[in-house]
Nucleic acid binder design. Structure first.
Lengths: 194, 194
DNA sequence: TTGATTGTCTAGCGGTGCTAGGATTCAGGT
DNA sequence: ACCTGAATCCTAGCACCGCTAGACAATCAA
């Protein structure tokens, strides 16, 4: 029994290594640079080993996305908890800032989650828990500022989409980088009902 | 002279053919299916011909993006002009609807403009006119609902980013498809100052 | 010790964007 | 009408991609 368990541990460790290496490489040089060859070389195994853990590159992206979603949820909750005693407005501002900050600091992970195809299901039954939890973290803070007669889930979707638009357009150079903070403020001011 | 002119006309026609074919292929089967080989085959020339018109695939995407930007500007102006006499609120709603509708109807073109790398400059001096004009079309309608003391350009950026977020997340399956209309309404309600 | 199972690798397939260099066509001068 | 040089276009090939078949070595059960 113990031998099997050790093997399973080693296998799990290698899988974590693959995901961590893919993420690292993507953050360093972009997802285009994450090829199966390079990835295999970095983990010091041959290419086919990757396929004994994941169906393909897309599933590796998906794994990075899940990891990122869990981190994002933690980050958002920490940010709103930090502003817990300062009223709803401060909480929402902190939430928006934390979200945009996460997207800026982890562009490759953010892409894996929301831009690339990681083969994950969204907004459905079979959506992975980590993703649902990320959305839940948003909802927890936003439901109190949704406004009367507005469905909190719907409001969260709109708020999230707006943040997502800001994050992606800013990072893709479609919006001037300097005014990011002012845009976020304006968004919070208008969307949140205080 | 006339010979040279004819050649130049033919060359321009072929360039239009390349862009139109790339766009068509992208809308039919996605940008992944737009390979230099397939594209060359469809226009009935060999691959290297593409490179006598464009530096590479990225520039072809850029050309499609410019075409799309011009169309988007026309579409948006037509939509707001159609609601010209119905007050600012109707105009903004028409604008938002037209934008989201464009993104939904022309996903490949929309991707070329805002998701993919077409090698274009944004929000800068050397930004192509078509892109500036697209932004101008948004601004024309939105500046009157920016609210007092809010810079119209900044407000337009925020509004645009929000629409962009809705468009991309919806199309990528990250948001449930059914409630698109309600989300758009909520967004307009909150952002526009009437 | 043997035989089967598991794990890993080498080698290779069909595809990608892109380009060097040769063949062909054609305009313009004699 | 013919030659010549330039412009045009294509064949063939490079290095790389994601992915996989099949050989080989290591490990375990009997």
């Amino acid at each position: 029994m113990s031998v099997q368990e050790r093997k399973e541990r080693e296998r799990a460790a290698r899988e974590r290594l693959i995901v961590a290496t893919a993420r690292e490489l993507a953050e360093q040089q972009g997802w285009d640079a994450v090829t199966t060859r390079r990835l295999a070389e970095r983990i010091e195994y041959s290419q086919p080993v990757l396929y004994s853990h994941f169906r393909g590159k897309r599933e590796i992206i998906g794994a990075v996305a899940l990891e990122g979603a869990a981190e994002l949820a933690v980050t958002l909750r920490a940010a709103t908890a930090g502003a817990a005693s300062e009223g709803p407005r401060a909480r929402v501002t902190a939430l928006a800032r934390a979200y945009l900050d996460f997207a800026e600091r982890n562009p490759a992970v953010y892409d894996a989650m929301f831009q690339l195809d990681g083969g994950l299901a969204f907004a459905q039954e079979e959506t992975p828990e980590a993703l649902k939890d990320g959305f839940a973290a948003l909802l927890e803070t936003l439901e109190e500022v949704a406004g009367e007669g507005v469905h909190p889930g719907l409001f969260t979707e709109v708020f999230w989409a707006s943040l997502h638009g800001l994050a992606t357009l800013t990072r893709a150079g479609r919006l001037p980088a300097g005014d990011a903070e002012r845009r976020a403020e304006l968004l919070v001011d208008r969307l949140a009902v205080l």
